[in-house]
């Protein structure tokens, strides 16, 4: 399944909750303020790195670029555009938005 997270990992626990529930092999898409989790050098970076070994992590490029963070994309996170977002939704049986 696809999990969608739209909150900064430094402000809310949405990413934590998502990672606690997400099953092996699931996909996580970071959008809106969630994209900060996909960058390098922040205090919550370790959580994402740990998750990369068991989950597919994607980030929505337009939201990353809008925030001036495109150059800081963490290794292993796959960038997608809106068409890629649509593809992820289509490809997975269901999706949960961690609002």
């Amino acid at each position: 399944m696809l999990h969608i997270v739209n909150k900064s990992p430094l402000e809310r626990n949405a990413l934590d909750s998502c990672l606690a529930a997400a099953q092996q092999g699931a996909a996580v898409l970071l959008i809106e303020d969630g994209v900060y989790a996909a960058t390098r050098g922040h205090a919550a970076e370790g959580k994402l790195q740990a998750a990369l070994s068991r989950l597919e992590i994607y980030v929505l490029t337009p939201d990353l670029e809008a925030r001036g963070m495109a150059q800081s994309l963490a290794e292993g996170v796959k960038p997608v555009d809106y068409a890629g977002f649509v593809e992820l939704v289509v490809k997975h049986k269901n999706c949960q938005s961690w609002l």
Binding site: S17, A20, N94, Q96
Partner: peptide, 17 residues
């Protein structure tokens, strides 16, 4: 949380508010 996550996988639709 992991058990709930497992149930999520089985759903057709998840609505979150």
């Amino acid at each position: 949380a992991a058990e709930i996550g497992k149930l999520m996988e089985e759903q057709d639709v998840l609505l979150s508010f």
